[in-house]
Design a protein around this nucleic acid. Structure first.
Lengths: 127, 127
DNA sequence: CTGAATCCGCGGGGATACTG
DNA sequence: CAGTATCCCCGCGGATTCAG
């Protein structure tokens, strides 16, 4: 992802490569539709597991937990467990998570703005 | 993606559902790492197939063509063929494509801004 | 150089069942 | 309700080959 030109010591160079590979790793984690849909659905609210599941059309139990763990690991969502019975687990966007959400909002806006363009382009292409 | 509440005829309702499923379809097309990396790499420039391939670390021949076709079909990139030998094919972002690129830029910025946060969160989580 | 097609292995991801 | 584990299959995606 856009490694800048620079002059520096070999150690600095190694650091930059490390940062870049990390950046790429994060990007790969985050740039998948389920993760982005979770981020978008969480929005400003805090939701329970099942609410989230119902809010995201077509996501499976497994994909939801799997992506939630991943997002939690990267510190984008916070998981809070209420030790009641039945258990109540809530998910909330952290500050970094909300930062990402802003850009996802942008993607959603973009999608709606260009719905027409894209549909037309498809019709043309498919002919 | 956020279907608004509204009052209207059944036909309008059907249209909205159609638009929503289309939006979701587009979102699924676009929200995958290869597509986004292609968009990001194209940036303002127009690039040839091989330049693109070299510019995107780890992408395979197949994934590149496949995603380029998809992006072309959705009208996000324009493919121009120069009938020379050897053939020369160039790819450029269209206006909708550049619109999307703006949000992808946002994601990249976000990634770099929170590199530290995320790395720390990971270390904590993995322990 | 660009791209379509084919083969094929591995893992993503669904369904289900079982714990706390 | 939330989460983990197991099974299993389909399809993603890599490698390779052939064509223009």
């Amino acid at each position: 992802m856009v490694t800048k030109q620079f002059k520096g010591s070999p150690e600095e160079a190694a650091d930059l490569r490390r940062a870049d590979s990390l950046a790429r790793e994060i990007f790969s984690d985050v740039a998948n539709k389920w993760a982005l849909l979770i981020i978008e659905t969480l929005g400003e609210r805090t939701l329970r597991f099942t609410e989230l599941r119902n809010g995201i059309e077509g996501i499976s139990h497994k994909m939801l937990t799997q992506n939630l763990r991943m997002l939690e690991r990267n510190g984008l969502v916070e998981r809070s467990v209420h030790p009641t019975v039945p258990p109540r687990v809530e998910y909330t966007l952290t500050e970094p998570g909300r930062g990402l959400r802003a850009t996802v909002d942008g993607m959603c806006d973009w999608t709606h703005r260009y719905l027409g363009h894209i549909e037309a382009a498809r019709d043309l292409f498919d002919a």
